[in-house]
Design a protein around this nucleic acid. Sequence first.
RNA 1: GGAGGGGUAGCGAAGUGGCUAAACGCGGCUGACUGUAAAUCAGCUCCCAACGGGUUCGGCAGUUCGAAUCUGCCCCCCUCCA
Length: 373
Amino acid sequence: MKSLRYKLIHKDHDARLGQIEINGYVIDTPCFMPVGTQATVKFLDYRDLKEINASLILGNTYHLWLRPGEDVIEQAGGIHKFMNYDGPILTDSGGFQVFSLAERRNISEDGVTFKSHLDGSTLFMSPEDSIHIQEKIGSDIAMSFDECIPYPSSYDYCKDSMERTLRWAKRGLEAHTREDQALFGIVQGGIYTDLREYSAKELVKMDFDGYSIGGTSVGEDKQTHYKMLEDALRYLPEDKPRYEMGIGAVNDILTAIEKGVDMFDCVLPTRIARHGTLMTSEGRIEIKKQMYKYDFSPLDKECDCECCRNYTKAYLRHLFRANEGLANRLLSIHNLRFLIRIVEGAREAIREDRFLQYKEDILNKYGFDERGF
RNA sequence: GGAGGGGUAGCGAAGUGGCUAAACGCGGCUGACUGUAAAUCAGCUCCCAACGGGUUCGGCAGUUCGAAUCUGCCCCCCUCCA
């Protein structure tokens, strides 16, 4: 529990420039974390991740538990060796699958029964199980097992669920033994201010290594989303990292940074890349469109990624339409690099006390719609 | 010259008297995507002034209340035998 050190370097209003040190890794924050659910950021390997200047990446407890199984990863010498990634790794607890696989699970006080999406078998995960699996996986930062609450949910449901998540957090904390692995608690409470407050305060009392804000961006409007974020952030300590889970739209990221969030992850950049949608400095591009058939310019003139340095839109369009795997790789590289570059710029701006201007400039210039991509 | 098989929407391919403007796949066009059951998913794809109408299943002519489906002739393609 003392493996993680957070250093707050500078504040520009509420935006924070900081550094996380863990197991010899140094992570500049704010940071964007690519998602690699199954011990791989889909289509990228360690060289690609280095090239885009990724630092933390995610793995997923539920998925790795089902396949290949945590024992395999443990015997491989941990997830870093298993996937050959020499950078910090964070694991999500399986709490998101309580939400995303809702139709195939059952929640009880003790934990969650899942009907495996792979073979239909019945599997049970308690908060202690989640922690033990994450310890075997060997991530640098683990998450408490929680329930990501759907939207909309009633006050009573949010309250019961949030309180159960708090009990699970405590159980997980007590079960956690690895000193070289940090453990974060996750604030829940739905859209309700008093529930978010209670959740945050109770977690802080338990003294986690960092705090996550969960259950946002699950269908609520932006205004509600940002309110939920503030309602949690208000009670979190300055000397610990804050992580808003599952956020990847540009406006969401910049807004969260403005409010004092340090870490983000999201499948959005990689997923939409695989589906042919790219975030660029000139707005959203759907690479499959006919208008790019003879467009021999790079995807984004301002981008320094491997894709933009070496290939044209016409070629990328061709690869995409021909269903060639290289399209998935190159486009994923671009979208990830795009977001990481924005966050790098944010760090610089905070250091120079001009973050608000930076945010405004980015949002004006890129011309994304209200979705933020 | 003889014997078989076949011609269905951009392509491939079902259908062999009404429930068929015609399954399904591909291709094409739209749209969605935020702690990854997602290289996925949804909608559209004969024509039109379209909650209705107009033309279709190689061509023409028939049978029938009704034909892509049955009959005749013609055109084209494939296989085998001479």
